[in-house]
Design a protein around this nucleic acid. Structure first.
Length: 764
DNA sequence: CTAGGGTTAG
């Protein structure tokens, strides 16, 4: 232990913590191992004390506490150090101020500042500036201004801090006023103050101030300096004035890779990705030295364009320069291959990275998620947690997406708890993914609580919860939320309307649906797309208004796509309309011959009107085209363990009890007489002869739930395909005779069965 | 000075 302590101490001065990290880095974890009872009078004989300055261990511990964000403990420890006569190093103060600012803890920051003033008569100027920065970071400009006014030794940095703070807060007049005060007070601005100042101008509203600074620099002849011009160009990029940036850029005699990168970032943000490729080509032509930053941005552009060919060329170039194993190049490479749906290459690129960081991990984990490898995605995440690897909020979003895919709400809840512990849950992107996770895992109640816990939900969060209610078949609540969203001043976007129209469609709200579609453009300023028209076709079709649906298909301002015909076809099946069905299926088969829906519905439409020969054609076509992708199955989680069933399953250890339960339940239940072909039958091989539907996977799972869970909890069953009509009726029946609530999530939505009724009101 | 990862839908 003694030697390791010495090593850790020597790490201290150079150990910089990444500012964006919310969690301790792996290096900081070493400091964290120093116990809080660390001796204040350090006299252990085994330690070679001559190598350790007095107070060094205590200061290491103090830094450790502050880096972990344990500010309360740090305050206590300051007192202990004082009592023990150990002095606090400037480095420790610096760390404390930074962390207080980062965490926005004004009270802790003030305490530390008071402590500093109390214990050191004339603190070094840089510490004063750190305290000033802390007040600004905590958002208290009044405290900052007060301190600034009292400061005896204001230097250039002090001015930059306060002026930047006003600029960032959008208090421009004050920032400019302070700037002129600075000039009056005889401070001679050097180029670094301008680069710092310009760096703080990061949004459109600060463009004017940026222009003023720019013109000041021209007037005083301070431009035409590479670093100043670079800063100006990048300021214009960040303030959204790309043309201005380009003007400055074009006039620069010497251009470094930095300004090229900055400009490419600007074009990327403007979604002008082709131009980014051109700029890169120009860089190569002009033999500008490219660095890893250049690769980051150019690879991002390739990823955005899904241009695998160009991406591979640039990948090759980076290998030639020996840069592909750098995180800054390897990570965007991983993302490029993920976005181009080339998971194998993504893995290879990842393995080349020398020291993957949190960003690299989130890129590869998102890759697992996006290529449907949900189980592996979660396993990797769990192993990273076990190893104590630093992760950030981005990873959680991927995990929240994986949870509903593997239908594991327990896992989702654990991940949620873990994210709370790390203080990563408040970030809005993750919160929306979390709402969706809960709703897709069957816990709309938790989804709503998660939604409520967000202080100011944005459009995406609102859309998540509205979709949740639509998905669970509660249209009125979905629409109520949609209006609440507008009342709170949040504007709907294109996806919000998909959710709203879906809610209408699942509840037969035809008039409302049409009104929403028609008002999108003029009232909400959201242009409808083919997807919205498809939703409306679905509304008409489900409601049995097939002619209206057909007219909309013909009259809409888009060419119908596969979804248009699929929605119509679905309606034809619900309302048994063979004529329109034939027309819809012909079109759907042309646009997407792989979609099994056309075959199954057409088979059933013909079969139900007694035309068995015609029906057989579709069955044969489907068999010939070998359209069986995945096996239809259902599963239920009991005591944390997943039990999976397929049709006619005999493998479960309790299979006898399951079947006898099913027989018992079937006594009073009559199967539908025209027994039809279901998706489950098709996916699991065509049955030659239709027998009882007793052994459909959904029923096996429900029966198992009945015999293995307490009677007061709902039975939650997941299946990977759509519920068949008979099983749907069966579930209703079971909910009556057993009095149990049953929840079934099929491939498209949730069904809540209670006392013989389903929340979908037989629309699905 | 400059970079890389994510959210809502049928």
């Amino acid at each position: 232990m003694s030697s390791s302590l010495t090593v850790q101490c020597s790490l201290l001065p150079s150990c910089a913590l990444h500012h964006h990290d919310q969690t301790p880095s792996t290096k900081a974890a070493n400091f964290a191992q120093i116990p809080s009872w660390v001796s204040l009078k350090f006299t252990a004989p085994s330690i070679n004390t001559s190598q350790i300055e007095s107070g060094q261990v205590e200061n290491v511990h103090l830094v450790s506490l502050s880096k972990q964000g344990k500010l309360k403990e740090a305050r206590d420890f300051l007192k202990h150090m004082n009592e023990a006569g150990v002095s606090v190093s400037p480095q420790s103060y610096k760390c404390l101020f930074e962390k207080c600012g980062l965490m926005g803890s004004l009270s802790d920051g003030k305490f530390v500042h008071d402590w500093l003033r109390k214990t050191i008569k004339s603190p070094p100027e840089f510490l004063e500036n750190d305290a000033l920065q802390m007040y600004c970071d905590c958002g208290s400009l009044s405290d900052a201004q007060k301190m600034f006014d009292e400061m005896l030794h204001k230097n250039l940095v002090s001015w930059v801090i306060i002026i930047s703070a006003y600029a960032q807060k959008g208090i421009l007049k004050r920032a400019i006023l302070m700037f002129s005060h600075m000039l009056e007070s005889g401070i001679r601005p050097n180029s670094s103050i301008f680069t710092s100042l310009l760096r703080s101008l990061t949004e459109h509203s600060l463009l004017e101030l940026g222009k003023q600074i720019h013109s000041y620099l021209i007037r005083t002849g301070m431009n035409s300096n590479v670093s100043i011009d670079t800063s100006i160009a990048n300021m214009y990029v960040k303030c959204g004035w790309l043309e201005g940036a380009k003007l400055v850029f074009d006039r620069m005699a010497d251009k470094n890779a930095v300004v090229w990168t900055g400009l490419m970032v600007g074009y990327t943000e403007d979604e002008k990705l082709e131009e980014v490729l051109e700029l890169f080509a120009e860089m190569v032509r002009k033999s500008v030295e490219v660095d890893d930053f250049v690769f980051s941005i150019i690879l991002k552009a390739c990823a955005g364009l899904e241009d695998l060919i160009m991406g591979r060329q640039i990948h090759g170039y980076s290998v030639k320069l020996g840069l592909d194993s750098e995180v800054s190049v390897g990570t965007p490479l991983v993302d490029l291959y993920v976005k181009c749906a080339n998971f194998e290459s993504a893995c290879r690129a990842f393995e080349r990275i020398h020291e993957p960081n949190d960003v690299s991990w989130s890129a590869i984990i998102s890759g697992y998620c996006q290529s449907g490898k949900f189980e592996e995605c979660v396993k990797i995440f769990q192993s990273l947690i076990r190893k104590g690897v630093t992760l950030n909020s981005f990873v959680y979003t991927s995990i929240f997406q994986a949870c509903p895919a593997i239908a594991d709400v327990n896992l989702g809840t654990q991940v949620h708890a873990d994210a709370i512990k790390r203080g990563l849950v408040a970030l809005l992107h993750g919160a929306s993914a979390m709402i969706t996770m809960y709703s897709k895992c069957g816990r709309l109640d938790f989804a709503y609580r998660a939604f409520e816990s967000i202080g100011k939900p944005d459009t995406v969060a609102w859309t998540s919860i509205i979709s949740g209610y639509a998905y669970h078949g509660n249209a009125s609540e979905a629409l109520r939320l949609f209006h609440r969203m507008q009342d709170s001043g949040v504007r709907p976007n294109s996806v919000t309307f998909i959710a709203v129209l879906t809610a209408c469609s699942h509840s037969g709200l035809v008039t409302e649906g049409k009104q929403y579609l028609d008002s999108m453009s003029c009232v909400y300023d959201v242009e409808p797309t083919i997807d919205h028209y498809d939703c409306m076709i679905d509304v008409y079709s489900r409601a049995g208004l097939l002619q209206e649906a057909l007219e909309l298909i013909k009259g809409m301002p888009f060419e119908p796509d596969a979804m248009s015909w699929k929605s119509l076809l679905g309606g034809c099946w619900i309302h048994r309309n063979l004529e329109v069905g034939k027309f819809a299926a012909e079109n759907l088969l042309q646009l997407d011959p792989e979609d099994t829906a056309s075959y199954i519905i057409m088979f059933n439409l013909y079969a139900s009107s007694g035309k068995w020969e015609e029906a057989a054609v579709f069955r044969r076509m489907m068999a010939e085209r070998n359209l069986r992708k995945e096996i239809g199955c259902s599963w239920i989680t009991v005591k944390g363990e997943k039990h999976r069933f397929i049709v006619g399953d005999q493998h479960h250890p309790q299979i006898e009890q399951i079947y006898s339960k099913l027989k018992e339940l079937s006594i009073s239940f009559r199967e539908a007489e025209d027994s039809l072909l279901t998706e489950e039958d098709v996916l699991n091989g065509f049955p030659e002869r239709r027998e009882q539907l007793l052994d459909h996977s959904e029923r096996l799972a429900i029966a198992f739930g009945l015999i293995s869970t307490p009677s007061n909890v709902p039975i939650v069953v997941f299946k990977n395909i759509r519920a068949c009509k008979d099983c749907h009726e069966f579930a209703k029946h079971v909910s009556v005779v057993t009095g149990r609530a049953i929840v079934v999530r099929d491939s498209s939505r949730f069904h809540h069965f209670e006392l013989g009724e389903c929340s979908c009101r037989d629309y699905w």
